[in-house]
Structure formats: C-alpha cells, structure tokens
Design a protein around this nucleic acid. Structure first.
Length: 439
RNA sequence: CGGGGCGUAGCGCAGCCUGGUAGCGCAUCUGCUUUGGGAGCAGAGGGUCGCAGGUUCAAAUCCUGCCGCCCCGACCA
C-alpha cells in the first residue's frame, strides 16, 4: 500500500477524552474513530489488525476441532424466554421491536441461538463431541463503557460452544479450549495466565479467565512464576488424546485474579521468589456449565443406552476487539505502538525520504515490489512530508520494520533498516536489507 | 446507577469568575525557501461557543432544563 493513496489519519495530539494509553494510541494512529460512548468505527489500519487477530483465533479454534459458523446479530426474544434469560439479563440487553411488533434483541452472547441450532440437527451421542463457534459482533449496553474498545458496547467476540454426551466428554472439550487459548495468545506474543474464575451458581472448578500481562491492565493477578515461564503447549499436541496432564500442569500452580485471591494460600503454595504480582487484562473466559441451556431448551442426546439426556455444554469467549487494545497495552513505548509481527497491519514501512529524487524513488519501488512479492505487506510512505514527520508517524503506527531510503545513504550504496521494537538501526545495501526482512 | 468533571475551528487549549459580539498553537490552503527525527517566512480559509428556553439594551460569559462525553465506584469478552 502506498501512503499517498491510503487512509491513515494520524493525530499529533490524542483527543482529551482518551485516557488510557491504548485508547490514545488507537486514536492517534488512526485505528478507530469513536462514534458514541463505547461504539467505534474501525479505520483501515485498525481493521487490518482486527482481521489478523480474528484469523489467528480462527486457526487455533479450527486446530482444536471447533467448527466455524456465523450466527445473526439479531436474535428472537422467544429463544431467550425459553432459557429464562430474557427477563434475567437486565438493562445490558439491547431490546428492539421489528415492524410486526415482534420482540428482538441485539445479541450479547449466543448460547440460546447455538443451542437452538444444535438441537435441530443433533440427536445421537455418535455425533458428539461438537464444538461450534463464531466470530461476531456482540452488543452489551454497558452501564459505563470505557477505555476505548477495551470495554465497548459493541465488540467483536469469538464465542465457541461445546456439546458433549457426558461430563467426561465436556471436560475433554474444555481442555481443548484451555490449551487452544494458550496457543492463541502466544501467537500474538502475549503472556497469558489462566486463572481460576468464579463459576457462579453452576459450581465446580471448570472456569478460567485468561489474563494477559500488561502494566496498565485493570486487574491485579497473583501467580506462581513458573506458570508464566511454562508458556503454551504448541500446536503439535494430540488434540483428541488425553490433554488432562497438560492442563493439570498449568492449573495446579497458584494463579488468581484479585477477586479470587487468597493470600494465605498463595504464600503456602508458592515460595517467595516464585510469587508474582502483576497487572493484567482479561481477554478470554471459558466455562463448563452443563445442562444450564440444554435442559430448559430440550437439547437432548440419545446415549448408547437409548436414553435421552440434555447435552453437556461449555462456552468459550475471546474478546477479539478487546485484544487489539490489550496488545497495545502490552506493547508500546513513548513513540507509539509496537506491533507483534503476527498482528501488525503491515509488515514493513518503507520510508522514502526524498520523493521526487529519481534514485530514491527507484530504490523504494524496488523494495516495495520485492517485499510485496515476499508477502511482507509493505506500506510505502511516499507522501510529500518531511523526514521527521515520516519517522514519527511510522513509529506511531508501529510496524515491525522500517526501511529508510534516502539520498545520503544511497550515495554510499546503503539504506537503513530499523527494528521498531528495539530501535536498533543498521545501514546496509538494499538487497541485504531485503534479505533480513524476508529471508 | 451513585459521585466528580468537561462540551468554544479537524485536534489540543485560552476566554466565562467581573456580560460589550471570539482568540492561541498544531492541522488545512497558496507562494517562496527548505528536506535524515513532527521546518522557516509571508498570506488565506475555517467557529449556529453542545441544544432549548430565560434574564438583559447586549449572553461563549448569568439562570433553568435537556443532550453528549470522560473519570472514580458497584457490574463485565
């Protein structure tokens, strides 16, 4: 993409409304524009990041055996009356009427819809397990939207729903999601800590929140340090084998968010040098909730004994749009965003320091063509701006590499290659720089 | 929803207390000079001062109501 033809409205000053760093940087870098409290338009750069995150989530869901569908944003109130949640959900649900005076709602989640789909087609234990997911916009009429897209009223969520014939199967489904989440966040270069979460009235120990570490996060986490260092299991595990040991390994170490924290247990279970207290952002939440929806909605499955029983269900959420902000919170500096390579909107910014200079233009075009061919998605800054302005706006939008091409360097046969994350710069011939970026 | 704050040009702000017909920086446009970390000079354009009432000879400024937005708290991907 050439900046001269692009739409990347960067701002020198962030609007006063934006308080936290990710919100300020998202507005300054031209990723989003606020339309109302908690409601945002996604601009080209922000949309590209959102799509890349979405794609990573999709790939890891697919790998773990989940199957993508797309459910509507508008849902029938009658379905929610069946589960009993229409009256329970409260003011956060955006309720609307169509022209026939029928009650609809803009979905805050999709347990009812997916259960309705499931029960329409699946009858036998032989068809299980199933895990259906979608990546769709959700609406919650938050009392207090805040922190930009971190807590919006409209947000993009990946929500998966597992169906199993019994609790053992449901636990296996839960484990797949548990490990898939660790892989998902690891691909975004985030350190995610699974912490035991409140399961509410369902009980049991099968609910975890995934907190990513960021100094500016809203919640405090207390965790055994080994948990962070253990990292993700990686893609090459036997997804339909016994995952329990891998999960146990990661759940027996102490980890709690502030509301679940027990200092005495923490001190008993983790030696002082292993106790880590940090700030974090919740980016995922998984639950096993059994028959909560399948029972009232009569999503029943015939077992091998021929007896019909409600399906055992779990649900698994990832805040896709929230992740955009969370990644920025976890990865930025005074100059702007530092995108992990996997979610960067473009792979490399080519800075033409002197548009109109034939040699510089030619070198930029050569780099642009080579990097495009190599799949590195270059963004060529060919605007008629001063060098300083280009450096500043490329630092702000945070592409992993900057390839700086100007007359002075070219006279010596060199371009300059800068790593955004470290600030490290190196002069070298263009061909060498291209090899570094696209080996 | 309770508490606090803020709405003046695209963005950041001053002016309001003490009413007299709107200003600064950045951005934008034109010209010239510049060009390796957000240039300099000269000129230009752009504002129903959130909205609606009221007080007054006169309202951005005072009063009332409403709307919007932000922050803290209680709740949440």
């Amino acid at each position: 993409m050439r900046l001269s033809r692009y739409f990347m409205p960067t701002l020198r000053d962030a609007p006063a409304d934006a308080q936290i760093v990710s919100h300020r940087l998202m507005l300054r870098a031209g990723l989003v524009r606020q339309e109302a409290a908690g409601i945002y338009a996604w601009l080209p750069l922000g949309l590209r990041v959102l799509r890349k995150i979405e794609q990573i989530v999709r790939e890891e869901m697919d790998r773990a055996g989940a199957v993508e569908i797309l459910m509507p944003t508008l849902q029938l109130a009658d379905l929610w009356r069946e589960s009993g949640r229409y009256d329970d959900y409260g003011e956060e649900m955006l309720r609307i009427k169509d022209r026939h005076e029928r009650d609809l709602l803009y979905g805050p989640t999709a347990e009812e819809v997916v259960t309705d789909i499931f029960r329409s087609y699946v009858r036998s234990y032989k068809d299980l397990p199933k895990n259906l997911y979608n990546i769709q916009w959700k609406f919650r009429d938050e009392r207090r939207p805040r922190f930009g897209v971190m807590r919006g009223r409209e947000f993009l969520m990946k929500d998966a729903y597992s169906f199993d014939v019994d609790e053992a199967g449901a636990r296996a489904s839960y484990n797949r999601m548990f490990l898939a989440y660790l892989n998902t966040f690891a691909r975004m270069e985030l350190q995610a800590i699974p912490v035991r979460a409140d399961t509410g009235p369902i009980g049991g120990d099968l609910s975890h929140e995934f907190i990513i570490l960021a100094e500016t996060g809203e919640s405090e986490v207390f965790a055994h340090r080994d948990l962070v260092e253990m990292g993700a299991p990686g893609p090459d595990i036997d997804w339909f084998g016994d995952l329990q040991p891998l999960v146990d390994q990661r759940t027996r170490l102490y980890a709690a968010s502030d509301e679940m924290h027990d200092q005495a247990r923490f001190e008993a279970e983790a030696p002082p040098e292993k106790r880590m207290t940090a700030r974090g952002i919740e980016v995922g939440h998984i639950f096993y909730f059994g028959e909560k929806y399948s029972k009232p909605m009569k999503a029943v499955i015939a077992g091998s004994d021929g007896v019909e029983r409600p399906a055992q269900m779990g649900s698994y959420g990832v805040g896709v749009s929230r992740l955009v902000a969370a990644i920025i919170e976890a990865s930025h500096d005074d100059a702007g965003i530092i995108w992990p390579e996997s979610v960067a909107p473009y792979g490399v910014g080519i800075i033409n320091l002197r548009p109109g200079d034939a040699a510089v233009d030619a070198a930029c075009e050569r780099a642009y063509a080579a990097l495009t061919t190599a799949g590195k998605e270059p963004l060529l800054d060919d605007r008629d701006e001063r060098p300083g302005a280009k450096f500043a706006s490329l630092d702000l939008v945070g592409l992993p590499w900057q390839l700086i091409i100007g007359p002075k360097g070219l006279a010596e046969g060199n371009v300059e290659l800068k790593r955004r994350a470290t600030g490290e710069r190196q002069a070298m011939p263009l061909e060498a720089a291209l090899k570094v970026i696209a080996p």
